[in-house]
Amino acid sequence: MKTQQELMSVSRAAELINAGKYLSIAGDEAALRQLPQGHWIGGTIPYFMAAEGGTVSREQVFVSEVSGFAVPPQLRFYDSATLPQICRNAPDNGYSILIIPAFSATHASFAQNAPNFEEMYMKPLIGWIAGIHLDDLGKTTPKVVLGSTGEFSESDAVVMDVPLPPEKFAQIDIVNLFHPGTGAGIRFQNNGFSAGDCLIGGQVGNLADYLLDKQIDTRLPLVADYSGAMINVSIKSIDREARRVEFYAPVFPGPEYRFAAPVTDYVTAFQAALPRSGLDISFSCNCILNFLNSQLEGKRTGEVTGPMTFGEIGYQLLNQTLVYLTVTE
C-alpha cells in the first residue's frame, strides 16, 4: 500500500486527524490553526510540490501519513538545550521526523552542532525547516506545531519518533543536482553561517571578493563531497562593505568546497536523478530555493511530492536538496 502524501483541504486533513491517523502536516499558519488536536506535528510553509506540480497555497495543507509503526509514535517539543538528545531518545529501530522553525536559536544550534549529537547517523533523522510566505518576511515568524496539544512555537523544534517492527528498516536518501564545478577549492577555518577570509585554491583570500571578482551566480551553492554525498551550502547574501558572505547553512572547517556547476534544465535533470518509479516514499521535502530559482510553480518533478522548505534535514541540515525516506522490509 502506497504511503499517503498529498496536498489537501483543511477539512480533509481534519477528517484524517479525527480518524486518529498519525500525520506530518505542512501549511500556512492560518491553515494549520484551523486543524483539530490529534496525533500530528506540523510546520508553517505555503510552498509545495503537489502531484499536479509546484503550488503556492495559503488554504491547503500538505499531509504525510505515518503508518506501519510497531507501537504508536511519540510526539514532543525539543528546545535548543534538549535537542542534542534527539537521536539518543529516538527508537532503536525506526525513524524521527523533525521540524524546526527557521531563524530560531534551535535552527542555528542544530545547523552547527547536529553532526556531533550523540547517536547521530546511527538512527534515521529526517525533516525540514519551517518558513513563511516570502511576502510575509518581517511580518510574521515561521512556527512549528505539536498537534497533540495544539501548541505553536517559533523557538522550539517538534519531533515525531516512529518505532518500526523488527522486520522493517528506514532509510534516508537525497537527490542533489548540484556537483562541484571546476573552480578553486575553498576551505574555511571556522564553522558558521557567514565567512569572509578563507583559503581559496590554497591561498589566503576573501570569499566575498572572490564571488564578485568571478561574477559567480549566487544561486549556485557551495558543494562539498562527503564520501560521495554532495552536500550544499547555499548563498544568502553578500555584504560588500564587510566583505562577508552569508549562508543558509553553516560551512565547516573540514571539507573542501567548490561552487557548483550550473544546472541548465532543473526539471529535466531532476526527473533523471529521481529514485526509481514505484518506490514507496514515506516522507519527502525539497528546497524553496530550487522552487524559486528553477521556477517550479506549475511544473512537476516526477512522483516525489512534499513541502518546499527553508532547509532540509537528512540527518544534518541541507540546502537545495531533495530528501526522502523509505521504509523497507
Binding site: 547517523y121 536518501d173 564520501s227 560521495g228 537528512g314
Partner: peptide, 17 residues
C-alpha cells in the same frame, strides 16, 4: 569504499576528519 548509504557517507566523513 563505494558507499550507497547516506548515513554512512556522513558518518565516515566526520570520523575521518
Amino acid at each position: 569504499l563505494d558507499i550507497r548509504i547516506l548515513s554512512l557517507k556522513l558518518l565516515l566523513t566526520k570520523l575521518r576528519e
